Simulated assay, not measured.
Amino acid sequence: MKYPLLASLIASLGIGVSGVANAVNVDVNIGIPAPVVVAPVVIQQGWHGDRYWDGHRYWGRQEWDEHQHHDDHGHCPPGHAKKGEC
């Protein structure tokens, strides 16, 4: 007689807990993520440290000087013509 009483107690406890579990409502609302705005990076032509940016690629100082001597277009980096270097 001991075991049927224990079994009914456990069953009624399980039913009661399941009713409480169904009555509890837990909502998790994360929301819409904020938009990511990326500003464009603009690199100006000219010397940046020991490298020269010509709008297409970086040149080392020695490489730029050698390129300028063989350039048929007469391009001179900004500021060099004023110094008489081209």
Rank of each mutant, 00 (worst) to 15 (best):
R61W: 14
W59Q: 02
P33H: 00
G46P: 06
C76T: 01
D71V: 00
G14K: 09
C76N: 04
A7I: 03
Y52E: 05
R57D: 00
Y58F: 09
P33L: 03
Q45P: 05
Y58G: 04
H67K: 02
G46K: 05
E85N: 14
P33T: 01
G14D: 13
I10E: 00
G84Q: 04
G79M: 05
Q44F: 11
D72L: 12
E85R: 14
P35H: 07
G79R: 00
D27R: 09
V42A: 12
H70W: 09
V37E: 15
A7D: 07
A34R: 15
A81W: 11
G49V: 06
Q68F: 11
I15S: 06
V28Y: 11
G60E: 08
D27C: 08
S12C: 12
V26T: 05
R51P: 03
H67Q: 08
S8C: 09
V20W: 08
Q62E: 13
C76S: 03
G14L: 14
H69Y: 14
G79K: 02
V36P: 11
P4G: 11
A23E: 02
H73Y: 15
N29K: 15
C76H: 00
E85W: 15
G55P: 05
Q45A: 12
Y52D: 03
Y52Q: 04
I32W: 12
Q44P: 08
G84R: 01
C86S: 05
H48T: 04
H70N: 14
M1D: 15
G60P: 01
D27N: 10
V42G: 10
H56R: 15
V24E: 09
P78Y: 08
K82V: 13
G19V: 08
P77L: 01
G14Y: 13
S18D: 08
W64D: 06
D72G: 12
G84W: 06
V36G: 13
W53L: 08
N22I: 10
G79A: 01
D50R: 05
I15T: 09
V36R: 14
K82D: 13
G79Q: 01
R57G: 06
E63G: 04
C86M: 05
K83D: 10
C76V: 00
D71K: 01
P4C: 12
P35F: 10
V38G: 09
G49H: 01
